[in-house]
Amino acid sequence: MFYKNPYYNPEKSHHTPYGFQNPEPLHIPLTRVAKWLKERWMSKTSRLPKGGYEQFIQDWMVEADFSHSGDYVNWLGHCSLYFNLDHTGLLTDPVFSNRASFLSWIGPKRQTPTPIDIKEIPTLQYVLISHEHYDHLDYATIVQLNQHFPNLTFIVPLGLERWFHKKGITQVIALDWWDQYVINDQLIITATPAQHWSNRHPFARNRNLWCGYMITHQDKNHYFAGDTAYAENLLEIGDRFDIDYGYMPIGCYAPEWFMGYQHISPSDSVRLHNELGIKQSIGVHWGVFELGDERFDDTPIQIQNAITQYDTPPIFEVVPINTTMKLS
């Protein structure tokens, strides 16, 4: 029996009768996947950072600090960001397991240490999930968070609430692109488009939506792009929002002939930052899982090279894992 999308709205271009799609089509044929895997297997080029991962950890990881007064954001590696906004805690795409996989012994391995113990988080009311891939939605981490913070609410893209319900988690808010969830008159979450795809197993491709999020706190907009490739339809985000802070993916981009359909390159991430008119951004989605063919320490270099291409250099930083950014 064919799957029928219970959320289908024919007036929305990213809806189909059988799931969801990108307005700018994303199709990755199996032949392209096979070519990438073959080239990766046969390549003699090392993906280790200079000095190895031990040196990378020394250069690009600091101790997490949650003791700050006022509002702040901690980047906890990959796409995990902790926001403390008026003592309301929000966490994006938390993955604190050793592998981004459904198995503990195989799959992409964490190359940098788990950044924190969940017990260190001072307060947490909301977890925002961008999509269901294993490097963004980790079952073990979700269970631990839900146990430690019993009143936790999960905000997810449309359809993904079913995964949580099957796990016995009922405090879930599901959003379609541009839907808003009002926490209070000072804090609003908006699901934004992303150029990506979803599946948790091979027979459920694109049944659940994927997204980024705009976190509007008082008069400031924080754009968490989630996992995305570059696409022109994303420019609508900049039309709708005056964006103060961007958290932009910059890793897992090589080779671009393959990854470019689903992951944004450093140069295109800076381009998107510029086109959306973001005041200042940091790079995320790098430095933890070896998902692309680039070396971790190449990524900051690529960002700096991209910035120099502009007459007025964009404010786009690459910071160590666990860096705290105080919000003015």
Rank of each mutant, 00 (worst) to 15 (best):
C79L: 15
L90E: 06
R99E: 01
G89Y: 02
T112L: 14
L81E: 13
S97M: 04
F83S: 08
N74F: 05
V95W: 02
F96V: 01
V73R: 13
C79H: 15
S101A: 03
W105E: 08
F102S: 01
L85K: 13
W105L: 14
V73G: 07
F83M: 06
I106A: 15
H87L: 10
T88P: 06
T88A: 07
S101F: 00
D86F: 02
P94Q: 07
V95T: 11
L103W: 03
F96P: 06
L103I: 02
S97Y: 04
D93L: 03
F83P: 03
F96N: 10
G77M: 11
G77N: 13
S97E: 11
F96L: 13
R99G: 00
N98V: 03
L85H: 09
T112C: 10
V95G: 05
Y82I: 10
V95C: 12
T88G: 03
P94F: 09
H87Q: 14
T114C: 15
Y82F: 13
G89S: 01
L90N: 03
V73L: 14
S101D: 00
D86L: 05
Q111G: 03
L90T: 10
D86K: 12
N98S: 10
N74D: 13
T92M: 10
F83A: 05
Q111H: 15
D86T: 03
T112H: 14
G107D: 05
L90C: 07
T114H: 07
P108C: 05
L81M: 09
V95M: 02
L91I: 06
W105Y: 12
L103C: 00
T92K: 10
S80E: 09
L90G: 06
S80F: 10
D93V: 01
N84I: 02
T114W: 06
Y82W: 07
L76E: 09
Q111T: 06
A100P: 08
V95S: 06
P108D: 07
G89Q: 08
W105V: 07
L76M: 12
T114D: 08
S104K: 09
V95I: 14
C79V: 14
C79K: 14
L81Y: 03
K109C: 09
D93E: 02
N98F: 04
N74C: 15
T92R: 06
R110G: 06
G89L: 03
S104T: 00
H78C: 12
P94N: 07
L103M: 13
P108F: 02
F102Q: 00
V73I: 15
V73E: 12
L81K: 10
K109R: 15
N98K: 11
T92I: 07
D93F: 02
G77Q: 13
Q111D: 08
L90I: 14
R110M: 08
H78D: 15
F96W: 09
I106Y: 07
F96H: 08
